[in-house]
Design a protein around this nucleic acid. Sequence first.
DNA 1: TTCGTAAGTATCGACTCGATACGATCTAGT
DNA 2: ACTAGATCGTATCGAGTCGATACTTACGAA
Lengths: 186, 186
Amino acid sequence: METAESSTILLERLARILQNEAHAAGLKPTQWEALRYLARANRFSRNPSALTAYLGTTKGTVSQTLNALERKGLLVKKTDHVDRRQVDIDLTRKARQLLDEDPIHALTVAMASLPVGEQAGLGDGLRTMLEEALRRRGGRPFGVCRSCRFFRTDDSRGAPHRCGLLDVPLSDSDSRQICVEQQALC
Amino acid sequence: METAESSTILLERLARILQNEAHAAGLKPTQWEALRYLARANRFSRNPSALTAYLGTTKGTVSQTLNALERKGLLVKKTDHVDRRQVDIDLTRKARQLLDEDPIHALTVAMASLPVGEQAGLGDGLRTMLEEALRRRGGRPFGVCRSCRFFRTDDSRGAPHRCGLLDVPLSDSDSRQICVEQQALC
DNA sequence: TTCGTAAGTATCGACTCGATACGATCTAGT
DNA sequence: ACTAGATCGTATCGAGTCGATACTTACGAA
C-alpha cells in the first residue's frame, strides 16, 4: 500500500509535467491529443462523439476544441451522408505535417531508451491501470479494428475484411486503425 | 520502438483520463495537486517558488492558483520573517479535511490491486521516466529530507537532525517531508 | 405523426496557462 | 553606504479548457 501510494504520486506528477511540456507550435495539450486521435481513428470514429469518448470529457468541450482546430485550418467538418446528425472530420495536410513535429516524440524517445525489462513492465502496468480506469467510468477501449470480436475476413465481395457489427466492408488499412466500437476478443 | 510508441500513447491517455477524473469538491486538478504538495512539503518548501518548481509551470500561474485556493479558505499566506520577499503558505483545517476525500485515493486503490510484480514494474518505470523528464527540463526531484546529501544527524544542540545546506535544526517530522533543496545521496 | 432519444452547438462562469510587465526586497561589488 | 543586478511574488492579457445547461436538428420506433 505504501508502494501504491508513492506510485500514484509519481504517476500524477509525471502526468502533469508531460502535460505542461505539450505546449508546442501554438497548440494546447488537448488540441494535440485530438489531432493524434483523429490521425489514428477509422472513418466510423472520426466524429465529435467518438472523440468525446476517447478524451473522457464532454460534448461541449470537444465542440470548442474542434472549433479552435478548424479556425487554425487543421481540420474540415462535413455532415455525414447516412446520418445527417453526425459530423465527419478530416485532418488537413497542414495537420499531418504538424503531427510530424509532435512534442510527444521526445517522450517516445525517452521511453525507448529505458532498459527493455523496465519498458515492458511500465507498458503492462499502464495498460492495466488504463483498463481499470476505463471500466470504472464506463469508457471504451478504442483498440485497433482487426483485434475486435466483430472483425470478419469472410467477405464474399471484393473487400478483404468486414465489420460484423456495422456490416460494412473494410480495407486493409481500415483494419489497422482504432475504432469506437472495438471490443476485445476474449 | 513499437512498444515505446504504444506505451507513450498509453501514458498520455491515462494521464488525460485521470486529469479529467480529478474534478471533485469544486476543485480543479491543479488545485488538488497544489494542496497535496503543500500538505507534504516542509517549511522551506511551502512557498510559491517551490510549488512552481514542483508543478513545472510558471510563477504567474501558481500565483493565480494560490489566490483561488485562498478565496476558498483553504490556505493562508504570510510574508517570511527572514526574507521578506518570500511568502509562507499554511493549509487550513478545512484543506486538511478536504484532503481526506482526495479523488486520488481511488487511483491508489486501483494501483494497490495490481499484481505485486506489475505494481513494482510500473513504479520503477514511472520513476525512471520522471527522472528523465526532470533532467530534460532542469526540474528538481523533491525527495524527502532525510534522503538528502545535506541531511545530518550530528547536531550537538537539542534537535535530533540538521540541514547541512541551510544550517538549521530539523525535527523528526521535518525529516519525513519533501523539500525543494533535496539532492539524492549517491 | 408524434414522442423519445441521439448528435452537435452555443453560451456562461470559473479557472489554467504562458507571456509580459511590474514592484518589492535582497545581495554583491564598489 | 550606494548602486546594479538578481530574486520573489503579483497583476494583467488573451486564448483556451472544462463542466453545466439549454438549445436545435435529425433519426427512429410506436
